[in-house]
Computed example of a mutant assay.
Amino acid sequence: MKNRKFVTVSLAAALAIGTIAANGVLVSADAKKGTIKVAASATPHAEILEEAKPILEKEGWDLEVTVFDDYVQPNLVVESGDFDANYFQHIPYLDNFNEEQGTHLVNAGGIHYEPFGIYPGTKKTLDELEDGDTIAVPNDTTNEARALLLLQDNGVITLKDGAGLEATVKDIKENPKNIQIEELEAAQVSRVKDEVAFVVLNGNYALQAGYSVSKDSIAHEASDSEAAKTYVNIIVVKEGNEDSEAVKALVDALKSDEIKDYINETYDGAVVPFEESTDDADAAKEETADDTADTDAAEDAE
């Protein structure tokens, strides 16, 4: 009976103090700040988010992660307000999506970079390519361009001048071996690897297919290239929410040393933590300052 009273008193005391145990860490009940709902691709995005949960929990946030297997719904559920953020895409895809769908989504922070790679199908090296062979690539605008640019960099095709990040198969200028480019939804590309000479894959789908960038890719984008800045995977939120306490906490957790170490130790070069250079940060500040100055000037002119 005495023991029972002791437990009751101890529990009451704990509640009076306002603390609860979470994964061995005492968190003030008053410090609980709410739930952050994030839509994500399964690999590596949702895995990285799972690693960030304890970091956010210590700060009073519950992180709720929902996995999506496409590139459309994660943006729509953030636009609708059903989710606070998503984590699956790079900036060119986001810009293209906003333009095509009329959405109002913005970049809240760059987290990692996934080198795009050429992987073996029925052929093991590009030297084995024969006339009429087929190479599978993603069919969405920015990722198809990225795949075609990588094939160009490795001498398979030549694109028209200026095709850049909007390149499609219609922009192929030279194709000496009459390579057939099979355009598929990004998640489907790896599934035809036994039917085509090569597949060109996003980093997350390469991981899901069991490929290692360092061991299996025939060629891939350099981690210190301009592509790393262009195709950094970002946290995306609806415009106006990028400076919210929840979103800032999420981005800070994902850019923490703990998460960087996890990424480097887990993904064998297929995922690389994104480090914004001082020059990039200064350029961003200058752009923001210019935008502010332009706005002020416009207001003064009214």
Score class of each variant (00 low, 15 high):
3 N>T: 15
7 V>K: 11
10 S>T: 15
18 G>I: 08
27 V>K: 08
27 V>S: 08
30 D>E: 09
30 D>F: 03
32 K>W: 07
32 K>Q: 13
37 K>I: 08
38 V>Y: 01
41 S>E: 12
43 T>L: 07
45 H>Q: 15
46 A>K: 09
47 E>L: 09
48 I>D: 05
50 E>G: 10
52 A>W: 04
54 P>I: 01
57 E>H: 03
60 G>H: 06
61 W>N: 04
64 E>T: 06
65 V>N: 06
67 V>T: 15
69 D>I: 10
71 Y>C: 01
71 Y>H: 14
77 V>F: 01
82 D>Q: 13
85 A>M: 09
86 N>K: 07
95 D>T: 13
96 N>P: 00
98 N>H: 02
99 E>F: 00
99 E>H: 01
101 Q>P: 00
103 T>G: 02
105 L>C: 01
107 N>I: 02
118 I>S: 03
120 P>Y: 03
120 P>E: 02
122 T>F: 03
128 E>S: 06
134 T>C: 04
144 E>Q: 12
146 R>P: 01
149 L>C: 02
149 L>Q: 15
152 Q>A: 14
155 G>W: 05
158 T>S: 12
162 G>M: 04
167 A>T: 10
169 V>A: 08
171 D>I: 07
171 D>P: 05
172 I>W: 03
173 K>R: 11
174 E>C: 01
181 I>N: 02
183 E>L: 06
187 A>R: 11
190 S>H: 04
193 K>D: 09
194 D>Q: 05
197 A>S: 12
205 Y>H: 12
208 Q>V: 10
209 A>C: 11
212 S>M: 08
213 V>D: 13
214 S>K: 13
215 K>R: 13
217 S>V: 06
220 H>P: 02
220 H>T: 15
221 E>K: 06
224 D>N: 13
226 E>L: 09
226 E>Q: 09
226 E>M: 07
230 T>I: 14
232 V>C: 10
238 K>C: 07
241 N>R: 11
242 E>I: 08
245 E>Q: 12
247 V>C: 07
252 D>I: 00
259 I>L: 07
260 K>V: 12
261 D>A: 14
262 Y>H: 15
268 D>E: 14
268 D>S: 03
268 D>A: 02
270 A>P: 00
271 V>S: 10
271 V>H: 00
277 S>A: 03
278 T>P: 01
279 D>Q: 13
281 A>D: 06
281 A>V: 13
281 A>S: 09
283 A>S: 09
291 D>E: 14
293 A>I: 03
294 D>I: 00
295 T>H: 03
297 A>G: 10
297 A>C: 05
297 A>D: 12
301 A>W: 04
